[in-house]
């Protein structure tokens, strides 16, 4: 128990050491999450664009298929 406390106190400089390691963790998390979220957003954008194109194609296809009488 005491050994653990001693480990976290870092000779009285724990605040400095652990805040540096916290910034490191932050940078890691940022570089894992940010590109992942951005790629998901791009995938949704692509899917939306594609659906719009398909409905547009259907509508124009239907319009051209209609034969005036």
């Amino acid at each position: 128990m005491e050994a653990i406390q001693e480990f976290f106190s870092m000779g009285g400089r724990g605040v400095y050491v652990w805040s540096a390691y916290a910034v490191f963790a932050g940078v890691i998390v940022f570089n894992v999450l940010a590109p992942l979220l951005r790629r998901r957003q791009a995938l949704r954008l692509v899917a939306r664009q594609q659906r719009r194109r398909e409905t547009l194609a259907e509508r124009t296809g239907a319009a051209s298929g209609r034969v005036p009488d």
Binding site: N31, L36, A42, L43, R44, V46
Partner: peptide, 24 residues
């Protein structure tokens, strides 16, 4: 590479392979 994939998909959003990746 992870950032590269996201940015590549953004740039190629009108391509057929992007649509395939998006599952449409």
């Amino acid at each position: 590479l992870s950032w590269g994939r996201a940015l590549m998909l953004e740039r190629e959003r009108s391509s057929r392979w992007a649509a395939r990746e998006a599952g449409v």
